[in-house]
Amino acid sequence: MPDYNDFLNRIYEVLKPFAKHGLILNEDSELVTELGLTSLQVMELIEQIEDHFDISVPLNILPDIRTIQDLAKQLEKLSN
């Protein structure tokens, strides 16, 4: 069963291309306001995580997610 850190590391991996201009990704990085992800890109991020961990992520969690940490926490909750 993947834990918080597994999810966190995977999110970092997927978001690498968005860490432009020397930006260092951390748990507090904001997906939309800081990294500039569009809603379509957020969906693509979720799909990549779903495929990797063989899970389905309900869209209902999205309104509660602003940062990388929020997402990792929600994913951990889902997989428990």
């Binding site: 969906m43 799909e47 992520v57 309900p58 869209l59 209902n60």
Partner: peptide, 12 residues
């Protein structure tokens, strides 16, 4: 779907 409150999962 959003209004109904069910778990909302998309497939490609």
């Amino acid at each position: 779907v959003r209004l109904g409150g069910a778990d909302m999962v998309r497939f490609r």
